[in-house]
Design a protein around this nucleic acid. Structure first.
Lengths: 339, 339
DNA sequence: ACCCGCTGTGGGAGCGCTCCCATACAGCGA
DNA sequence: TCGCTGTATGGGAGCGCTCCCACAGCGGGT
């Protein structure tokens, strides 16, 4: 296939007229090497085109310089723009700086999930980045038991489960931003299409909605709250429900852009004009928000920064067994025409 | 940290009362082991919770069971929905079936790119998947020289560069689908906002446009063709240009959804109704297409299948040094309201 | 003159696995 | 009874690296 073997550290040592230990020291940047020797070794490396064998190093150091990014593919939403791409981008950038490789691990079925757990606790990676975790996911527990450092994307579902590293986006604050805008532009009957109650993002955005209402001195009417699952179909149902339970609504805060888009459609069908009769604000700043009719006012999440912070936390703190830390990132309101 | 060492193959052998060789044979599924012994080894593995050490295996076999997916991050477009997510999904699924790990490698700067090349030819992966390659990218050359198997996403830019494995999406056919639809619904002055001339996707979609026009017996008027770079801004400029060079146009085929969206805006500004006065068809079936006003008719690309085929080609053919193969996937027209 | 400590260096041991040769043993025909 | 095959098994060698101990050489203090 590819002819002769690649040069080994031994070969470099011979070529430079030094011992193996010395070459190893040069490669790993130990300062216990004279400048002359270092030069000699460096040029030998160059001449031979030497590249260290990672497997051999891993075998003895027990470090793999590899970090896994775990995503549950069952969580379709995660793969939606711009979340996934942003996270990956942020993670990849920071890991590259730290000389770490990114292993992308996805699990579709429960069996996949099991196997993935085996792999991760099998010592094949130095650390793990977890996004889109379900509340009942066994992975954090297994990783903790095996002593594998990890960082969560999103806040821990069980606060009591012990301190962990995590990076979250301020969902409460983001929702407040949205609803405050609605209240600030004179809306008084502000409804919400909320997310599922069993997801932190769903809970927190609803909490933000409530706080902003209270802050504005508006009544918290249960008829103004409908639950859905972040999807377009769910949003459609929820919006129809709202129109019945609270026909006098003059604004809608949807906890996802998909649901906001659905709301737009349902409202138009019902003969309400947006934003004249009803203002609509979404959440995510997805691609489709800008193209919607009318263009959607929405809450932008710093996904790339989130990925970056997660990688940073893992590389700089979790891997060195520092005390767990939580980082919360701020959102930003993108004002367009819908509300 | 994590207490005692993980059990080794040696430990399993002792526990089962056999030799190392036998355990190794069981793990690697050799048939030269008696059923009784196999059972004994299996239960020893289970009891001890043994997981093979990949590094040690790699050290001797020179296989890593790792495949790199390389994306140039400079290519912003790639990270756009739904391309990237689809590819990743398809690749991940097939690799998991084959017991291969997915290493995601991105390169932002030229220096990154250089380092990435070093890494890939350094024997750290068994094979490479390349997407969004620039015509002048040195990676394929380096990989070929180093004897590392790889598969291209998209057709090779230099057909003369020797046969390579690749998976492409039928851009010519996709464009034909779009333009045929326009001609079929009675449009006679069909313009196009084409992609860049130095990208295969740009060239091929323009070629498809031309063929479909000819097929429909329509005149190929240069005033009906404007070039852009697939972006929204570029599309806006190009559409304005078309409105000047061919004010009588009654349809537009845009080579990307972003450009189609821009065209929609420019046309509305110019007082043309879509689809009544001017029909518009896009390309990509991006998220924003469905939310556009009016919802965009567009060409859907099988991105997940593309990723899957790439992984399959690499795992089943390239890794075993089979003769290079090209696979071309078909597109599908998604008819919505715009054209 | 001596010894002590410090820096730079060489190289043995060993990480956990696979490869492969040697060996043990059962079965069978002569 | 004695080979002779063929199959199941044990274990040495070695993959390429890091770790760490040993040691040479050089000042400088006593």
């Amino acid at each position: 296939m590819d002819g002769e073997r690649r040069p080994t550290l031994e070969a470099v040592a011979r070529h430079a007229g030094v011992g193996r230990g010395t070459v190893s020291r040069v490669i790993n940047g130990s300062e216990r090497v004279s400048e002359r020797t270092r030069q000699a070794v460096q040029s030998a490396i160059e001449e031979l085109g030497y590249v260290p064998n990672r497997a051999a190093r891993t075998l003895v150091t027990r470090r793999t310089d590899m970090v896994a990014l775990v995503v549950s593919e069952s969580e379709e939403r995660l793969f939606a723009q711009p979340f996934f791409a942003g996270i990956v981008r942020g993670v990849a950038g920071v890991l590259a700086e730290r000389g770490l490789q990114l292993l992308l691990a996805t699990a579709r079925t429960a069996a996949d999930h099991e196997r993935l757990g085996d792999y991760l606790v099998g010592g094949h990676v130095d650390g793990v980045l977890l996004v889109s975790l379900h509340a009942d996911d066994p992975l954090p527990g297994r990783l903790t038991a095996a002593g594998i450092p990890f960082v969560l994307g999103g806040r821990p579902a069980h606060p009591g489960a012990g301190a962990v590293h995590y990076v979250d986006i301020d969902n409460v604050g983001g929702a407040e931003l949205a609803v405050r805008r609605l209240a600030g532009t004179g809306r008084r009957r502000i409804a919400t299409v909320a997310g599922p109650a069993d997801m932190p993002a769903g809970q927190d955005r609803l909490e933000g909605y409530r706080r902003a209402l209270e802050e504005a001195g508006l009544e918290a009417d249960p008829a103004l709250v409908a639950r859905a699952d972040f999807s377009r179909e769910g949003g459609e149902r929820a919006m129809r429900g709202l129109l019945e339970s609270a026909p006098d609504l003059d604004a809608v805060f949807a906890a996802s852009d998909d649901m906001a888009l659905a709301a737009l459609r349902v409202l138009r069908e019902a003969g309400r004009r947006v934003p004249e009769d009803v203002a609509v604000v979404g959440y995510d700043d997805a691609d489709l928000a800008a193209g919607a009719d009318p263009p959607l006012t929405t809450v932008h999440q710093p996904t790339e920064r989130m990925g970056g912070e997660m990688a940073r936390l893992l590389a700089d703190r979790a891997l060195s067994r520092a005390a767990p830390e939580g980082v919360v990132l701020e959102t930003r309101l993108v004002v367009r025409a819908s509300g």
